[in-house]
Design a binder for these strands. Structure first.
Lengths: 375, 375
DNA sequence: CTGAAAGCGCTTACAG
DNA sequence: CTGAAAGCGCTTACAG
């Protein structure tokens, strides 16, 4: 028996052991579902646990077993450009990132892992410290896009398993994303060939987002290959937010620019803002200008007109990220804890799908919707 | 100096100390921003830390300092009634709970806490174990509604500080919620007095949800007090989901029931489903039937017609929950770690606000919206 | 099947 | 200002 006191503090494994008249080793075995303790022993321990309201300390358990069963998820707090508050809630609530986190959480659960979520502001000057503290509380990290520079990612990945998501890239880490190239090329063909648009534009997301770069490059290239024109430049630089889309269209119209026949946006949020600003000026979508998005967030099909976009397998991206991270964490061979060196197994690109709805000029879906005019 | 090896494993404080030529105590002091180490010492330590890519282990730190700087947030995974998938995404993504968590996270951040989020399925048979494991990883727990029985809550609260949210109640715990009573009475008055409706109904949320009970009881009482009729009973039992709302309306119409002039729903999600099902049968809202919600989630103003509802201060509820929990966690006096015994300081009821939009019969807001017919 | 004991990686009085 | 040492509450070989 041990001499530790059972004062007013929370009961420990020693208190349980004393009360059950066994050693702490036996209590631990019962706690962990080992099958050696015999029924009589087990019952006494269980009884003591419930009488004391004992909750095993996760920190002690983690320290001893070298496993926290916690993965950290870091994403960026997004504040769109101020547009008068109209999209304030959207920019904070309908995020792509939330959906991915849901996907991660569901799979993590099955393995007994919990999620430590943390949002960061890109301009925190103590960011490296923040991330380090978070890393210390986890077995591994999943980093969303736009939370850390490639160098920063590479640095943290020296010490803890890291999987990056949907765009973020660093040195020697595993990345999981949706296929932006194929679907943006398909989008370009749909707009140019099926609808016959010749003058188009691409509204970019954050300039340093890999996903954005791939989308813009492939869309532009395919449009040009088909003999179309694709407007680019600073005037078309968005920031993945609805407010950003609003600003761009307002700016263009204020300058008296002739709008292109179709605008492909870097994501759904941007498309939402663009459609809003167009409507504001009495322009019809898709009649005057066709608009498309990327992601296929839940609200996309409820827009008026329904949004043509690219569906990303969002939950699956999250699930895949966790599975990869988990295999890195549990790799008994330390060499496996580091990501593989060949590019193929460091990049998981999940298939995406072009979703043709109304905003590109395709005919409306006949099913009823409360977001649309009741017939 | 210590004799521990610096093998292939992650570097520890001992490795840093050896490399910097100091004791682990000094490293610890630098790590924690104490101001005693003199600059020269500090620099050597910092250099060693960065060269080694050292990340202090959160578990060891927590065990030693008796503080994890983590709060657990447990919410319920919601699966609405199957309605053919139309609202599948909504029921999973636009949740009230997500918004609350955002509020918690923002405030927690400022105190250096991270959130351990975990969703539970109400019918998990190992639920008590799950919750216990989660509790072991945190300094305190915030429990959403519908995750644990009052008895279960009271039990876990014996050992770890617990704050319950938006409805959940247990024994001796602190609860934070929006004011459902006042605003539902106001809603009743608005519908009966301002619009002159005499025959109304309340579609309930989960029958054992305290918030639901308060909403239903107050709405019904006020309607009756004003001489109106309020339909109730099993036919009006929903489940807080859009799918639930759809099923109820479809069922009523299939039975050939005469619908009431106005339907107040337990939350926005339910109202969404109700409006959808009504539109499905060619019924006009609010022309044929007025419909109202509760919560004022972002999508409420984008519905057609815009939803009249009650705005809850969602972020504030989350923020308040964290602040209360934090004060329980940091109470030096163990007696303060237990919630106060007087009901007033165990129940924080935040003010809510009736938001009159179109679905109750009020005139439309003239501002443009892409979710509505472009003028 | 069970127990004594070492050890996980930190923090923090306590000396100096 | 700095270091040696105890201790946080578990898990897990190692004996028996």
């Amino acid at each position: 028996m041990d001499a530790r006191a059972s004062s007013g503090a929370a009961p420990t494994i020693y208190d349980v052991a004393r009360r059950a008249g066994v050693s702490i080793a036996s209590v631990s075995r019962v706690l962990n579902g080992r099958d050696n303790p015999r029924p009589a022993t087990r019952d006494r321990v269980l009884k003591a646990i419930s009488e004391l309201g004992f909750v095993p300390d996760g920190a002690a358990r983690a320290l001893s077993s070298r496993l926290k069963q916690v993965v950290g998820v870091v994403f960026r707090r997004v504040y769109g450009i101020d547009d008068g508050g109209i999209f304030e809630d959207e920019s904070e609530s309908l995020l792509f990132g939330d959906q991915i986190n849901r996907g991660i959480e569901i799979v993590a659960q099955r393995r007994g892992y919990d999620l430590l979520v943390s949002s960061v502001n890109i301009d925190e000057h103590t960011l490296p410290n923040r991330i380090m503290t978070i890393a210390g509380k986890c077995d591994g990290l999943i980093l969303h896009d736009q939370v850390l520079s490639p160098a920063g990612i590479a640095n943290i990945a020296r010490t803890v398993p890291v999987v990056t998501l949907a765009g973020a890239e660093g040195g020697n880490v595993v990345n999981v994303r949706g296929d932006s190239a194929t679907s943006m090329r398909e989008m370009a063909r749909h707009l140019v060939q099926d609808h016959g648009y010749r003058r188009l534009a691409y509204i970019a997301g954050h300039a340093d987002s890999p996903d954005n770069i791939v989308r813009g490059r492939n869309f532009t290239a395919e449009v040009q290959r088909l003999g179309g024109e694709c407007l680019t430049g600073p005037a078309w630089q968005g920031d993945y937010s609805a407010g950003g889309g609003v600003q761009i269209v307002r700016g263009l119209i204020a300058l008296g620019a002739t709008l292109p026949r179709a605008i492909a946006c870097a994501n759904d949020q941007t498309a939402l803002g663009v459609i809003y600003a167009l409507a504001e000026h009495g322009l019809d979508v898709p009649g005057d200008v066709a608009v498309t998005g990327f992601d296929d967030l839940p609200f996309a099909r409820h827009l008026r007109p329904q949004l043509t976009t690219v569906r990303q397998p969002i939950r699956e991206i999250g699930a895949k990220a966790f599975e990869v991270l988990h295999s890195m964490i549990t790799a008994d061979d330390p060499a496996l804890a580091a990501p593989p060196s060949d590019s193929a197994s460091r990049n998981f690109v999940l298939p995406t799908q072009l979703i043709r709805r109304e905003s590109c000029g395709c005919p409306p879906d006949p099913s009823p919707s409360v977001w649309r005019q009741i017939p």
